[in-house]
């Protein structure tokens, strides 16, 4: 089962494709529109929505493989869950949704799988594999066994390279952090509710007054 490519046609066509994959319906796309609408509920049960984009589920879930289809990364479901905990530590649930709510770990996996060069994919996987061993070594427990405070402490130590780290661990963390932030700021929730992105601004003002003088950089 291949990866769904949404870049060119958007969600409606994605539904068409899915309909084709799952139902093998042999009708023209236009005639399928209503049919697809009716089947939407059913289809949604087999889709994974990550930040507004539909990802195709893996066919191998029962065998302990990652829950989404990946072309290059060979990840287990356990590793996926560990990655989810790492992203949740980076961007936790507060009074607004956190990384797990927004399924940012799936976004990280999708981006590393498709958009990062092979070397970075290797570091990512190597670092992910070494994370638990590192935590056990340094904190006496694997990552998921640590308290939220210790999880942050462990990741900060990895980020700051305060001690010698196993192979790929720092690179892994940088990739996960950057992609988590990227996925967060570009998620439907944030773009609609927090830092709003407008599809149709309808205006341009080159002298917009700034009220708070908060400067960064």
């Amino acid at each position: 089962m291949g990866l769904l490519r949404l870049g060119e046609r958007g969600l409606q066509s994605a539904s068409n494709n899915l309909n084709f994959v799952y139902c093998q319906a042999n009708r023209p796309a236009y005639a399928q529109a209503n049919y697809i609408m009716k089947r939407r509920t059913a289809i949604q049960q087999i889709l994974i929505l990550a930040g507004g984009v539909v990802l195709l589920p893996s066919c191998l879930q029962s065998s302990g493989k990652a829950s989404i289809a990946l072309s290059h990364l060979d990840m287990t479901l356990d590793q996926e869950q560990l990655l989810a905990e790492v992203t949740e530590t980076i961007l936790p649930k507060t009074d607004t949704p956190g990384a797990k709510d927004l399924k940012l770990h799936l976004y990280v996996m999708k981006m590393v799988d498709d958009c990062h060069p092979e070397e970075e994919r290797k570091s990512f996987l190597q670092g992910l594999k070494n994370l638990d061993a590192y935590c056990t070594d340094a904190y006496g427990m694997n990552f998921s066994g640590l308290t939220p405070i210790d999880r942050e402490r462990a990741l900060l130590a990895i980020s700051n390279k305060t001690q010698e780290l196993p192979e790929g661990l720092n690179e892994f963390y940088q990739i996960v952090k950057n992609r988590s932030i990227d996925g967060y700021l570009n998620s439907e929730y944030v773009m609609k509710n927090l830092v709003v992105w407008e599809l149709v601004p309808g205006r341009y003002n080159g002298y917009f007054p700034v009220k708070t003088a908060k400067i960064n950089g």
């Binding site: 769904l4 490519r5 046609r9 507004g52 999708k110 773009m191």
Partner: peptide, 13 residues
């Protein structure tokens, strides 16, 4: 086909 899509509707943003 992409004209009204939001950034989060693209698989790779």
């Amino acid at each position: 086909p992409t004209t009204n899509m939001y950034p989060y509707q693209f698989a790779h943003r």
